[in-house]
């Protein structure tokens, strides 16, 4: 199992952001992590990436405990946060070289070129982050994550700031990585996209796991038996925010 979360709990003072969360993601799977604002999605992803320490519970990344064996676990994963964090004084190419050095990627130059083409960053290699748009910065962060081809990919709102073509390309990139055997955990508010690319969905609400399954399974659970039920309808029904016809 590439990602294994067992009874994860995380508190901030008196506030419990995530409580007793458990799920697994296998190689080749794309699991969508969805929920309303404040549901605990980002906290979960940060705990999985080793940025936040779990208050309780266990997180295994590629079989390594993120708390007990943090360095081994971090080598297995790439975390792409919703807000791109880049060094203002390093160019795009230098960011990739830095990552190559820190993760021990010997052929970083050879890997970088096709990746830059895939993410439409060709011609921007020598640009500083200050010269890039938000969407471009987001692509640089994703390039830094993908350049070392890790078996676990964590995406937090990866499509924020991307144009429609960028969104389509990013979707293809994520699917291709999963087909190559990566375990992908994707948090997004773009439910049609989640429905399109994800093999399974975990719905979080107020820090808890509300549902876990394929779109078909979730639709059956909330008695939405139509073949064309959307994830949005399922999500609203599960979280109790759907209004009967005529009341909306």
């Amino acid at each position: 199992m590439s990602i294994s979360v067992e009874g994860l709990r995380r508190t901030y003072g008196d506030l419990t952001a995530v409580q007793y969360l458990s799920f697994k993601v296998s190689p080749g799977e794309i699991v969508g992590l969805i929920g309303p604002n404040g549901a605990g999605k980002t906290t979960t992803l940060r705990a999985l990436a080793g940025i936040l320490r779990p208050t309780a519970g266990r997180v295994l990344i590629g079989g390594f405990d993120i708390v007990e064996q943090p360095l081994d676990a971090r080598r297995q994963l790439a975390f792409m946060p919703d807000e791109p964090h880049l060094f203002e004084y390093l160019t795009v190419e230098e960011h990739l070289r830095l990552i190559g050095r820190l993760y021990g990627v010997a052929d970083v130059d050879a890997r970088a070129q096709p990746l830059l083409e895939e993410l439409e960053l060709v011609g921007k290699q020598q640009a500083l982050p200050g010269e890039l748009s938000r969407g471009m910065k987001q692509k640089v962060v994703i390039a830094c994550g993908l350049v070392r081809n890790p078996p676990v990919l964590l995406f937090d709102e990866p499509l924020t700031g991307l144009d429609p073509i960028g969104i389509r390309r990013m979707r293809d990139t994520i699917v291709r990585r999963a087909r190559n055997g990566a375990a992908v955990l994707l948090s997004s508010h773009m439910l049609p996209l989640v429905q399109e690319v994800c093999t399974r969905v975990v719905i979080m609400y107020r820090g808890r796991k509300f549902a876990d399954g394929t779109v078909q399974e979730l639709a059956e659970r909330v008695e939405l038996h139509q073949a064309d039920s959307t994830l949005e309808e399922i999500f609203l029904r599960i979280t109790g925010h759907d209004a009967p016809a005529g009341e909306a």
């Binding site: 070289r97 050095r101 021990g104 982050p129 200050g130 010269e131």
Partner: peptide
């Protein structure tokens, strides 16, 4: 962003290319 950030840094070449292998401390030094 380009107007505010460009004032602080320019992407001038410095003649030091970080190698692919070595101590992590060197990456921070670079």
């Amino acid at each position: 962003p380009s107007a505010t950030v460009r004032r602080s840094y320019v992407a001038r070449r410095v003649g030091w290319r970080l190698g692919a292998a070595g101590w992590p401390e060197e990456a921070f030094l670079w």
